[in-house]
Amino acid sequence: MSGDPAKGAKLFKTRCATCHNVNPGVNSTGPSLAGIFGRQSGSVPGYAYTAANKNSGIVWDDEVLDKYLTKPTAMIPGTKMVFAGFKKAKDRADMIAYLKTI
């Protein structure tokens, strides 16, 4: 399913921006999401990840992000991310499309 980056940007502002930033090197409650594609989980410099995240072995791509964004705690038990997830596949596709633009 292809997503709409403009809709993903709106979702990001309402559901993710409280904890995440899209500027490189700017961490908040959560790590910066700039350059997430192809990056190993738990590897943003300056962010204090849980061992679960650092040791997950996950490399972020479309398929992995779709699964993760469905229910983060199910994919990485022990993560400190408290986001419940996006239930709708279209919302996940829109978010992934947006993240590809940053």
Results as ranks from 00 to 15, higher is better:
79 T>G: 06
15 R>F: 06
14 T>V: 12
31 P>A: 06
68 Y>N: 07
32 S>K: 06
30 G>N: 02
41 S>F: 00
3 G>L: 11
1 M>R: 14
34 A>I: 08
81 M>C: 00
60 W>A: 00
77 P>F: 02
10 K>I: 05
25 G>H: 13
57 G>W: 02
73 T>A: 15
18 T>D: 13
36 I>L: 13
68 Y>G: 06
82 V>L: 15
87 K>F: 04
94 D>L: 10
14 T>H: 08
95 M>Q: 02
60 W>E: 00
77 P>Q: 02
1 M>C: 10
35 G>R: 06
50 T>K: 14
60 W>C: 06
5 P>A: 08
76 I>K: 04
27 N>V: 07
10 K>A: 15
98 Y>W: 09
36 I>K: 04
23 N>Y: 11
90 K>G: 11
61 D>T: 09
21 N>A: 13
20 H>Q: 03
69 L>K: 07
75 M>P: 04
53 N>F: 10
20 H>T: 02
47 Y>K: 12
95 M>H: 11
5 P>V: 04
53 N>P: 02
9 A>C: 00
33 L>R: 01
5 P>N: 08
69 L>A: 10
100 K>L: 10
65 L>H: 09
68 Y>D: 06
40 Q>W: 08
4 D>A: 12
93 A>L: 07
71 K>G: 11
1 M>G: 13
73 T>K: 09
57 G>Q: 08
22 V>S: 05
58 I>D: 03
8 G>L: 02
44 V>R: 09
15 R>C: 07
92 R>A: 07
20 H>D: 03
74 A>P: 02
57 G>I: 03
29 T>L: 12
85 G>I: 00
102 I>P: 05
65 L>F: 07
49 Y>V: 05
32 S>F: 04
57 G>K: 11
49 Y>I: 09
66 D>P: 01
100 K>W: 06
33 L>Y: 03
90 K>V: 15
30 G>L: 00
102 I>S: 09
76 I>W: 05
92 R>I: 11
98 Y>L: 03
81 M>P: 00
88 K>E: 15
31 P>S: 05
85 G>C: 03
70 T>P: 00
11 L>A: 01
88 K>L: 10
19 C>Y: 02
46 G>P: 04
47 Y>W: 15
17 A>I: 06
30 G>R: 01
61 D>M: 01
91 D>S: 02
9 A>E: 07
38 G>Q: 10
45 P>C: 13
97 A>H: 12
50 T>R: 14
70 T>L: 13
34 A>T: 09
38 G>A: 08
97 A>F: 12
97 A>C: 11
69 L>I: 10
85 G>F: 01
87 K>R: 14
72 P>R: 02
55 N>G: 01
15 R>Y: 09
80 K>S: 14
37 F>N: 03
1 M>V: 15
97 A>Q: 12
2 S>Q: 14
15 R>P: 00
83 F>V: 08
2 S>Y: 10
52 A>R: 11
83 F>E: 05
54 K>Y: 01
66 D>A: 14
69 L>R: 01
43 S>M: 12
9 A>M: 08
93 A>N: 12
34 A>N: 15
